[in-house]
Nucleic acid binder design. Structure first.
Length: 885
RNA sequence: GGGCCCUUAGCUCAGCUGGUUAGAGCGCUACCUUGACAUGGUAGAGGUCAGAGAUUCGAAUUCUCUAGGGCCCACCA
């Protein structure tokens, strides 16, 4: 105890130094000597990203579990990493390039552009890591992996090649989601449907060699340039006679067949459907069934091409307007109605997604998805909370093939090569030198890159070195794979969790982790998503600067259990900061007494020596330790936080410390010594218990007590079955009740906190009487009871008093002229009424024969005891009420 | 259209397998600069647990329905 602890709790002074120390001492490295293993990978944030509250929550949850497991003796590994985030990163660099140099990526060329992206990555990557360190993430940086590193690249190539050779990856001309801003295909998972106000147009299609016209409803009239059929339902009597005839597409005057297809709904629209196989998923299927031609009317940027001459060059919305105008002119527009419908948007670009036919690479996931579903159903992989497996299933039960290729530059290049001379197409795990068929060396690699989630899907494997055996050995793949746990948000269950599961089950024949904890999404106080446009975001780094990281982590933990949302109120963070301050100050109070205390205080050896309040606090501590282990093990961080909060604040600070003051300031040196030893022991346990949630302040305070050892390496407290002090707890609770009632009485007549009072207790309970006598000094300390007279109930009660009662003890405070009879009568009546209501509730139960008959005995006797206690209190209060009136 | 979830104090939320005087934090009221802490202390006010019904000796807790709100999935013109 050489150092003096500072008077004020200032988080920034203590939070900056510990991370470096832990890292330097290799505290985050796995301990291979331990038999039980706990391993987890961090969901890799975007390299060039900034930490937001979602990350803070995600990583706080992980760090709490990791620290708890580590302290509980597990061989613990938490792997950090970062994602190249193909689309997001490329867009940012493109935007900057244009802003600063007015250049596009095409001006630079692929190679040069990629150099710029790597440079950008090098420049900005560290932001997110230093921020992760700032929140205390105790991950092992020796394992740090970037999704575009050589290792993951090799994993990607191996997986692609194998799946290609197994026939699961194929290239095909299909209708896909085309993002017109990114000018790339995207997968189904990356499409969001948003409700948009639009119009519902009814158009006129003439029938060839007939006077008849067909009315066709559509929300997208501009696509008529791509129409290659008109379809009706084969059962539709209205149009049966027209099947096999031809219709004329307005404006382009093309004749197209009128076909019959089951897909057409008799009730919808007009019953006639324009079929645009090039730009609608359903129409594409119809087109396949009827072998219709496909007309592409869109350029890559979403403008109309020369297949739509009258509106060529316009974007979809402009083209729609012009098409309608032209239709009106030619009197082929029948009707326009307002209409709300769901429109596909890119979740990255937020631009409208156009269905478009194009040649892309796909992964057939049918079988893989089935196996993934089965592994969850068989309990090989568990979601916590369990309900989230529904989300997992809903995605995997009817999977569409995964569109893997992206027309981007930043990402893993597709390892498909075409021989320039013999045109042989092949996949290759390693950079090939020659065509395996004709041995020519001129090979052309596919220009596209892979969906970012393809490499993310291999994350639990690739971070441990797979498939390079040497690296796997070095990273202890066999020990740490599969992972124990994954922690993430529900928004990426199908993006990521589903894909990791499929990949791991296919290549490793086991799920990538045995448990998945899904936490909620952080929102603002009003439950709105945090977003730039609303300006309601809370920046974790600003929060840390203002309140400290420990307070932020405690707040996030308090809000995270099995709920799906966490509405973050800054007032809560302030409250957590105040809690940290409380801990700081209570340590300041006990610290002078810790000099010379026993660092290895053995509680079990001293159990018999404990006095009543010591037994009580030890019992409470023991219960707290038990709960903490249970709650942290179940990812109930909310319950864990409130458990430790309540123990520290309400038990330790409010009562035990107060009760320790007379001991510590007294002159019984043995007792002072013993109490100091115990205080040290208790406080050390408190620091250990809280450390996983708030690591910095606990490590800091620990360092004042123990110079040579770090807290992070201590053993987490466990339940001690030798501690059985239930009776002492009852007595203490009775004492707390009496003190509270005296304080209540004092407050009711505005007795100043300083004023000493005289109290008359009346009880026939000998134990209670003895207890009140022995604890008289505490009553003085805590309720300023200068003199406590203890009498039997047969003795006369003092007049001119205010009174209260527990089941066994009547408490009288003579207040002479201070008393206002009417107020006191009202107060007593109110209390009596409350008691009567409760008594009657219980009494009614007892009068019910079937309750006595059917309820378990312990419940019945509990209720009987309750009635007795209420009656005791009521009669005490009533007697006094009579005396007053 | 399918699925999931929510509705408990003024606000944000706990309340696990049915039995509690229904809890916490913030806010509010009164009193208090008491030698760890005003980032504090003591005491208090505030809830017919969204509504209706059912099961049960007993329901905030289980079931059904209704109302309101949120989220996810889905190609329906």
């Amino acid at each position: 105890m050489d150092r003096e602890i500072e008077k004020n709790y200032t988080p920034e002074n203590i939070e900056t130094k510990w991370y470096d120390r832990w890292e330097k001492d290799k505290c985050f490295s796995p301990d291979l000597s331990k038999r039980e293993v706990f391993s987890i990978v961090m969901p890799p944030p975007n390299v060039t990203g900034k930490l937001h509250m979602g990350h803070a929550l995600d990583n706080t949850c992980q760090d709490i579990v990791v620290r708890h497991k580590r302290m509980s003796g597990y061989n613990t590994l938490w792997i950090p990493g970062a994602d190249h985030a193909g689309i997001a990163t490329q867009s940012v660099v493109e935007k900057r390039l244009y802003k600063e140099e007015k250049k596009t990526k095409h001006d630079l060329g692929r190679e040069e552009f990629l150099k710029r992206v790597w440079a950008w990555k090098e420049e900005y990557a560290n932001t997110i890591f230093s921020q992760l360190k700032k929140i205390g993430a105790s991950c092992d940086w020796d394992y740090y992996t970037f999704t575009m590193d050589e290792g993951p690249n090799r994993a990607v190539r191996k997986v692609f090649t194998q799946l290609y050779n197994e026939g699961l990856i194929y290239q095909e001309e299909k209708i896909i989601n085309w993002d017109t801003v990114l000018q790339s295909a995207i997968s189904d998972a990356e499409v969001e449907h948003k409700e948009v106000k639009g119009k519902f147009y009814t158009l006129h299609y003439k029938v060839v060699d007939s006077d008849e016209v067909l009315n066709i409803a559509t929300t997208r009239p501009e696509t008529l340039f791509g129409d290659t059929a008109v379809a009706v339902n084969p059962k539709d009597e209205r149009f049966k006679h027209l099947i096999g005839k031809e219709a004329i597409v307005p404006l382009c005057e093309r004749t197209v067949p009128i076909i019959a297809d089951e897909h057409v709904d008799l009730e919808m629209g007009t019953g006639c459907l324009k079929v645009t196989p090039g730009h609608d998923f359903n129409d594409f299927e119809i087109g396949k069934r009827h072998d219709l031609p496909i007309i592409n009317i869109l350029n890559n940027d979403g403008t109309l091409n020369d297949n739509a001459k009258p509106v060529q060059g316009l974007n979809a919305l402009e083209a729609r307007k012009k098409t309608i105008a032209l239709l009106e002119e030619s009197e082929q527009l029948v009707d326009v109605k307002d209409h709300k419908h769901q429109v596909a948007h890119g979740e990255r670009s937020d631009s409208i997604i156009e269905p478009k036919v194009s040649k892309q690479w796909f992964l057939n996931v049918q079988k893989m998805a089935e196996i993934a579903v089965k592994s969850v159903k068989d309990g090989k992989m568990n979601f916590v909370p369990k309900q989230w497996e529904n989300t997992f299933f809903s995605w995997l039960n009817e999977p569409r093939d995964w569109c893997l290729s992206r027309q981007l530059w930043w990402g893993h290049r597709i390892p498909i090569y075409t021989c320039d001379s013999c045109h042989h197409v092949f996949a290759s795990e390693f950079e090939p030198q020659n065509c395996p068929k004709c041995l020519e060396s001129k090979l052309l690699q596919d220009p596209d890159v892979l969906d970012t989630w393809f490499s993310s899907g291999l994350w639990p494997m690739s971070t441990l070195g797979w498939p390079d055996e040497k690296v796997m050995e070095k990273k202890y793949f066999d020990i740490f794979f599969p992972n124990t746990l994954l922690v993430t948000g529900f928004d990426i269950i199908f993006f990521w969790v589903a894909r990791m599961s499929m990949m791991s089950l296919h290549f490793m024949k086991c799920p990538p982790f045995s448990e998945v904890y899904i936490h909620g999404i952080v929102r603002d106080k009003q439950g709105r998503k945090m977003s730039k446009s609303l300006g309601n975001g809370i920046d974790p780094i600003e929060v840390i600067d203002q309140y400290g990281c420990d307070a932020m982590r405690f707040t996030l933990a308090s809000g995270s259990g099995y709920n799906r949302g966490l509405n973050l109120d800054p007032a809560q963070i302030e409250s957590s900061r105040n809690f940290m301050n409380k801990i700081w100050n209570v340590f300041r109070f006990i610290s002078p007494f810790l000099k010379g205390t026993n660092p290895k205080f053995n509680l079990n050896a001293n159990l018999k020596k404990l006095d009543l309040e010591e037994k009580w606090i030890v019992q409470e501590l023991n219960e707290t330790a038990k709960k903490m282990n249970i709650f942290l093990g179940e990812y109930r961080f909310d319950e864990a936080s409130s458990t430790i909060y309540s123990f520290i604040y309400d038990k330790f600070c409010s009562w035990f410390i107060e009760l320790s003051k007379p001991v510590l300031y007294g002159n019984d040196s043995d007792k002072i010594g013993f109490r100091s030893d115990l205080l040290r022991f208790l406080f050390q346990e408190i620091l250990k218990l809280l450390h996983p949630i708030s690591p910095f302040i606990t490590e800091e305070i620990w360092s004042f007590i123990n110079k040579n050892e770090l807290l992070i390496t201590q053993n987490y407290p466990r339940y001690n079955s030798q501690i059985t002090f239930e009776k002492e707890c009852e007595a203490m609770n009775e004492f707390i009740d009496i003190v509270t009632k005296i304080r209540n009485l004092r407050a009711s007549v505005n007795l100043k906190p300083k004023d000493n009072i005289e109290v008359h207790f009346f009880t026939d309970n000998k134990k209670a009487a003895k207890f009140l006598f022995e604890y008289r000094s505490y009553l003085k300390l805590l309720a300023k009871v200068e003199k406590g007279n203890i009498n039997e109930k047969s003795k006369a009660r003092p007049t001119q008093s205010i009174m209260s009662a527990t089941a066994d003890v009547e408490i009288f405070i003579p207040v002479a002229d201070l008393i206002d009879i009417d107020t006191e009568i009202a107060r007593l009546k109110k209390q009596i009424n409350k008691m009567i209501v409760e008594r009657d509730k219980s009494q009614k139960k007892l009068e019910n024969p079937s309750f006595i008959e059917k309820a378990p005995d312990d419940v019945v006797s509990e209720v009987k005891q309750k009635v007795k206690n209420f009656n005791n209190q009521i009669s005490s209060l009533e007697m006094n009420l009579e005396n007053l009136q």
